[in-house]
Nucleic acid binder design. Sequence first.
DNA 1: GGAGCGCTGTATCGTATGTTACGTATTTTG
DNA 2: CAAAATACGTAACATACGATACAGCGCTCC
Lengths: 240, 240
Amino acid sequence: MISSIAELISDRIGTMPAGERRAAQTLIASYPMIGLKTVAEFSAAAGVSSPTILRFVSRLGFQNYPEFQSSLQDELAAQLQSPATRTLNPPSPGGGTASPMLEATLDNMRETFKHLSDKQLADIASRLADRRGKTFLIGGRFTDPLARYMAAHLAVIQSDVFHLAGQESMWRDRLIDMGKRDVLVIFDIRRYQDSLVRFAEKAHQRGVQIVLFTDQWLSPIARFARYVIAGRTAVPSAWD
Amino acid sequence: MISSIAELISDRIGTMPAGERRAAQTLIASYPMIGLKTVAEFSAAAGVSSPTILRFVSRLGFQNYPEFQSSLQDELAAQLQSPATRTLNPPSPGGGTASPMLEATLDNMRETFKHLSDKQLADIASRLADRRGKTFLIGGRFTDPLARYMAAHLAVIQSDVFHLAGQESMWRDRLIDMGKRDVLVIFDIRRYQDSLVRFAEKAHQRGVQIVLFTDQWLSPIARFARYVIAGRTAVPSAWD
DNA sequence: GGAGCGCTGTATCGTATGTTACGTATTTTG
DNA sequence: CAAAATACGTAACATACGATACAGCGCTCC
């Protein structure tokens, strides 16, 4: 079975004419970076002409050059988004019984914080600590407990912390309490809920500052959010 | 010092207008793949117009969009050529970008799972999946949302899942429903609550199987628990 | 409440990019 | 050795991509 373009190339490189073979070798040599550049650069690097590059990708089975580039990008994305596969190959560092699930979770956390600067966190923290405004928290079907959890902790250090629970109609009534000085913390992950999006939009129209916790695919609420915290969530599991 | 474009973005994201901030967040969320695609695709993914994307890369200091893409590609190439540094650097003790808090948290998780065999987890999982009995979940003041969270997920794969909330007196009434085939999941961390201990003892007397999630100092409920999961919780923080 | 500023989207333009046609060179076969 | 077929590059073409000018809008500050 052929899973990557690199395998596809080394599989067919034997049947290629000289010029296309040079293209293939150039691509393999610095895989896959050259393939992401333009045809002109690719051809210059391989020392052949542009049409030869085009014939090369055509022989690999691609309809046109952009389609070839998209495949390379998808391959790269798959590699980057699951660093766990690379961590799995060498024996686990601690020597203990490291499960794939645990390693994936640790990697997820590292990735999440990698894309989160201290400054952003400090900004959000100071915004939440601002005593002049009220703080509202809300979550989706599964994430509502997270909102509740955070609300319990926030309530310790300041008053005016409200967790919005129950029916959608009950949230609406709280909208009239919200203003520009207030902060709305929303948890919305994976199966994004329409009701939450609508609520976020209404709050946004009232000038409420929205802090959104979501996953790497970004809930549509990100449109209205002042701050977005995107966490990596994928783990090797049969759960959806 | 700013070495990557991601850092550059998180450094200036605070000074950006709303539209460009959406672009920045979209790029960070699936870094850096979106940036390698066309302006049109980028703008569509971020929900803004093409010029906003161009203004965004311009604000980052790039002369034009292709120059921005080249920088991303160079960054990617550097990452790919030294895959070791990618996964090995973050855990390094002197790591510059890694916050002490994050490292402590990751260490906590590793320690927690180190003392937790696969067999124990499998036992608990099969016990929870046992359809013959009911499952009850309860937590303390701060940990109750965790119980709620777990209940929401368990409820997906089986019925007869009950989260015990509200007043202590209300839990008592549910005791008569519990028997030897049932499982009670308790979260009790740090300031162990007397009410929870009493409840656990009564449940234990009725033959209920107790699964306890606690910290490394072990809640007194561990006396009655069939399974105990002790997690490391200490992080460097001013929080008690 | 009014005036000014800054942000954002629509529409247009120029151009760089991928694509194709054709002629020449090189190799292969009878 | 000759003839044909395949491969490669040059050059012209069309598409779509990035860039820019402009107008509408909301926001802030006076």
